[in-house]
Nucleic acid binder design. Structure first.
Lengths: 143, 143
DNA sequence: ACCTTGCATCGACGGATATCGATACAAGCC
DNA sequence: GGCTTGTATCGATATCCGTCGATGCAAGGT
């Protein structure tokens, strides 16, 4: 799994702006796999509510697992499993303090998702591929 | 990166005001199920690339399926299946014109997702629930 | 009418996933 | 040391999901 910290393995101009946006240019296969893993982690109601409870608690810091578990109808191992998936997706991080484990949001990941889902406000088509929009006059091969 | 523009209709200030943001207040069960369905639709590399190709083609309008299918290593029924899931998630819409079927992005859905994934810039905790952040002194019941 | 082409649907199959109970591990307390 | 509590891991299982080939349907061309 790649960490979005230092070295960006995507050749598509990571730092300077143009094209890490899903809605402007199709991602590479590896990049698509990476994003899909994060979106898949959000694709479960329990995980979505877990993430939301972690992100929205009023302290601004962390949430104890002992506050998350009793809020759901599923068992404690299931909650632990979902937290693990969210952690492996880079959405949250955990820290043990004494008996209890606290989870906190990693805002870089949600910021990144929000960014790639945001449309470029006006006509910025600098990074498009060569797909045409004419009424399909050619006959591409098909499997 | 924070998106502070001048005349930009900041997606943070959504029309419905306070609380449809995932990171500020936990959603209801039904709402979580609904969002999870959309995120789950994005949780596959093929679907992610399909959506991206549809959203980013330079015409600004639609993409013929005949241009999508040969861009992948999976069979035509599989592409059709993925397009159906994206359509059922409200991310794209289709229209048949003559022999060909054209798909287009439904930007309201991606806008919505970007919106609920966006943090409120400064201390706006008006919509939080009552979760405390103290070092876990109480003993909540557990299953 | 017949054939061809583009796309959707069907049925099947293998792998992934959500869930559980049981259990192991970590940390504090007696 | 042993007990208790909080959390993670382990197997097992039922269901879901991605993929395929076969087939059906729509539309245009001959």
């Amino acid at each position: 799994m790649s960490n979005q910290r230092s070295g960006e393995p995507d050749p598509r101009a990571a730092a300077d702006g143009c094209c890490p946006r899903l809605l402007s240019s199709p991602p590479e296969e590896a990049e698509a796999v990476e994003y899909a893993r994060v979106f898949k982690a959000l694709g479960d109601p329990v995980r979505l509510r877990l993430l939301s409870m972690i992100a929205s608690h009023n302290g601004g810091g962390e949430v104890c697992v002992c506050h998350l578990t009793p809020a759901f109808d599923v068992s404690q191992p299931t909650i632990s499993h979902h937290l693990k998936l969210l952690r492996e997706a880079g959405l949250i991080a955990s820290e043990r303090r004494g008996t209890w484990v606290y989870y906190r949001l990693l805002p870089e990941t949600t910021d990144r998702l929000a960014s790639i889902l945001t449309r470029i406000p006006s006509g910025d088509t600098a990074c498009n591929d060569g797909a045409d929009s004419a009424p399909c006059t050619d006959h591409p091969a098909q499997t």
